[in-house]
């Protein structure tokens, strides 16, 4: 697998983030420098539950995602206040609104070309899918 893919695995597969030891700001992905001026950060794992902060329905998608349209994308605000962008899996557009509770799960994101690698990462799922 290409290095550009593997180096993002901790973030994409396990929600590994960073936290500033000085001001407590959470960085996803982890950073070398915080906006507070500190360069002292530590590993931190994001919570996997949260709610939809905003969303859209992609009806004209990039070719890599063509077989998924229409699909829902969202900015999810996790329980600790961190926000990230991902798809909302298996959701009909009318099931999603601002404030809808979701859980992040490990999912296939797409498959590039006939010979390409299968890309994985986090997607948000609605509570009715969570066991």
């Amino acid at each position: 697998m290409p290095a550009g893919y593997t180096r993002e695995i901790p973030q994409r597969y396990r929600l590994e983030a960073g936290k500033c030891k000085k001001c407590g700001a959470v960085h996803f992905p982890q950073r070398l420098a915080c906006a507070c001026g500190s360069k002292d950060t530590e590993p931190y794992v994001l919570p996997s539950t949260g709610k939809i902060a905003t969303y859209s329905v992609v009806r004209v998608g990039p070719s890599d995602f063509m077989d998924l349209v229409p699909y829902v994308v969202a900015v999810v605000e996790l329980d600790d206040g961190t926000k990230l962008t991902c798809q909302v899996a298996d959701a009909a557009p009318e099931e999603v609104s601002v404030g809808t509770p979701v859980t992040l799960e490990f999912r296939k994101v797409n498959q590039v070309g006939g010979h390409g690698i299968i890309k994985y990462g986090y997607k948000a799922v609605l509570d009715r899918f969570v066991e």
Partner: peptide, 10 residues
């Protein structure tokens, strides 16, 4: 962290 997930500019 955005485009990877299939998010377009629109």
């Amino acid at each position: 962290y955005e485009v990877y997930h299939g998010v377009t500019f629109p």
